[in-house]
Amino acid sequence: MAVIDHLRTAPRLSFRFIAVWLRNLKVWRKLMLPSLLGNFGEPVLYLIALGYGLGQFVGEIDGMRYMVFLASGIVCSAAMTGATFEALYSAFTRLTTQQTWAAMLAAPMNVDDVVLGEIAWAATKALINASAIVLVASVLGLVAGPQALLVLPVILLAGFAFAGLAMIITAISPSYDFFLYYFTLVMTPMLLLSGVFFPLSGLPDAVALGAQFLPLAHVVMLVRPLMTGGVVEMPLLHLAVVAGYAAASYWIAAALARKRLVR
């Protein structure tokens, strides 16, 4: 079947994906501590170093201390990195060198189940990372109130979107080196242009308009007011964009993985 035929075929959804998710959870639990340290140590360092260091020069943004502004951005970027790394490197290892996917497919599992299980797990990693940072931020007094807990379901949804996008790359990747294209062409521009470190209003109009198409920008627009006690503007629009990315990327990633594996 050609790629286009796979893309025209809807993924078959079933609860089988839970077995894949559980498998990955089981492995993660064995290495929980180093994994947690590695995954949220770095964003916390960014938060503290940039927040204190840069914050002294920046002063206030949108009426809040820079550290407060930055904390919500770091929560979003950590979710993105967490989901992306899991769906790229870890999933690719299971797809290629470890042949874990092949073993699953010999059992009563479809490619659609395996891809969904991997994405769900990567989204869970995003949630774990982001939760840790929300916790640190609240200890540092950077969170406005309990409504910050609403960040967590948003981050889980965002995790599905970022994991789905990364899974598209994993499904077509010939090797680990291929991921560098994704980092340089997608991840880094998205990280810099989504309002994580500075508000979009500081960008030229054309760039700010273009940023409206980035899922991370919408995640930040949802998460920042929730964490800083502001009002979320157009929440349904932002949620729809993120959910749209999640659904479309899963559809495409599953189609490309079928193309790669069912042959």
Binding site: A19, L22, K26, Q99, T100, A102, A103, M104, A107
Partner: peptide, 20 residues
């Protein structure tokens, strides 16, 4: 294509889960 992240016993348990 045994699962290198698991022991002998865990391999059987995890694989059984793929069968539901």
């Amino acid at each position: 294509n045994l699962d290198p992240d698991f022991s002998v016993r865990e391999n059987l348990i995890v694989y059984g889960a793929y069968y539901g």
